[in-house]
């Protein structure tokens, strides 16, 4: 009897879970049908009827919901990639800065971490957005930051390569009557999300970097310095390679958080995956399907990032074990 108990218990758990899922599914389906919505993913092929201003691929109101989700996914990936590169660079600098023997640099780096880690990301997104919208000049008074780089309320206009019949050409932004045409324009919404994500995540990455560098025994750098290596050489050839090993897993965690946090774009109207799903679900009533799509996409992105980072970690460990530091 005692042997059978765990099996009976588990069978009961499976039964209860299946029953609950079946019950929920039938209640949801009945409620959706009562509202005149046919459950299922068929709506993805229907006409979306809304426009998306900021997009990487062609899209207008006549396209399908499915394509709208694709536009949203590309926007999520775009802002996440930019923020990943920027936050790793900034976080690395600040992390090393915290360990600097120069007290000014160290204190400044600590202040960076304490400020940006302790304010909610949503608030940072809103603050950067309000700052951009409120303080930037109108397009016809745009600030010129460099040749063909213009910053104004309509965003950051930069030259962008385009493929024409004669090959790759650099398309320059031109000021039209109301806004810039040509080139590529990074909207204030995009910039707000990218900048806030970078600042917030860089604070966490800096702490990761600091912890990893501190985990390298002090004797290592002392020995390197005693051998006549300069401080930069010591960092470059002795400390960083060893720190990298213990840094990659927590760094991977921070990048996963960054990708998930990019969903806060919805607060300033940057059309990322979640914003598109939000519009779609209020318009079509397919709440369950839209939320399932969001969850599936983020789970996929998380798994992909985790797999890439662990592949890198594995390669690094193998290389270092082979003595090729």
């Amino acid at each position: 009897m005692t042997k059978a108990r765990p099996y009976l218990l588990q069978a009961a758990i499976i039964g209860a879970v299946l029953l609950a899922l079946y019950g929920l599914a039938s209640v949801v389906a009945a409620k959706m049908r009562a509202l005149g919505v046919e459950p299922g993913f068929g709506f993805l092929w229907q006409r979306a009827g809304f426009d998306i201003g900021d997009r990487l691929i062609a899209f207008d109101a006549a396209d399908t919901y499915g394509r709208a989700f694709l536009v949203g996914l590309l926007n999520t990936v775009r802002v996440a990639l930019v923020a990943i590169v920027a936050s790793v660079l900034l976080g690395g600098l600040v992390g090393l800065g915290q360990l600097s023997r120069n007290p000014l640099v160290a204190k400044l780096s600590e202040a960076h971490v304490e400020i940006f880690r302790n304010v909610p990301l949503l608030l940072q997104v809103l603050i950067v957005y309000v700052l951009l919208i409120g303080r930037l000049p109108l397009p016809h008074e745009a600030w010129q930051l460099g040749p063909d780089i213009w910053l104004s309320k309509s965003g950051l206009a930069i030259p962008w390569p385009v493929l024409t019949e004669t090959g790759w050409l650099l398309d320059h932004p031109l000021l039209g009557r109301f806004t810039f045409t040509g080139g590529a324009v990074l909207t204030p919404e995009f910039m707000a999300v990218a900048v806030a994500l970078t600042l917030y995540t860089s604070a966490y990455i800096a702490e990761t970097v600091r912890g990893a560098v501190q985990s390298v025994p002090h004797a290592q750098s002392e020995a390197a310095l005693a051998m006549g290596l300069s401080e930069v050489q010591t960092l470059r050839h002795v400390v960083v390679p060893q720190a990298l090993r213990s840094m990659i897993p927590p760094l991977a965690n921070q990048l996963l958080n960054l990708i998930k946090n990019s969903s806060l774009a919805v607060a300033v109207g940057y059309p990322d995956l979640v914003a598109v799903a939000d519009t779609t679900l209020t318009q079509s009533g397919h709440a369950v399907e839209c939320i399932a799509i969001i969850m599936a996409v983020y789970l996929f992105l998380s798994l992909l990032t985790a797999a890439l980072m662990s592949a890198w970690h594995g390669r690094l460990l193998r290389q270092q074990a082979g003595g090729r530091i």
């Binding site: 929920l24 209640v27 949801v28 409620k31 959706m32 998930k260 946090n261 969903s263 806060l264 919805v266 979640v274 799903a277 939000d278 679900l281 709440a287 369950v288 839209c290 939320i291 969001i294 969850m295 983020y298 789970l299 998380s302 798994l303």
Partner: peptide
């Protein structure tokens, strides 16, 4: 793992838009 793999926004959407569908009339 599912909850840790998705953003809080998705969970909040679930709470706001999906939970009402789960409830009987």
């Amino acid at each position: 793992e599912i909850i840790r793999g998705v953003p809080l926004v998705a969970v909040l959407f679930m709470a706001a838009f999906m939970f009402p569908l789960f409830m009987p009339k």
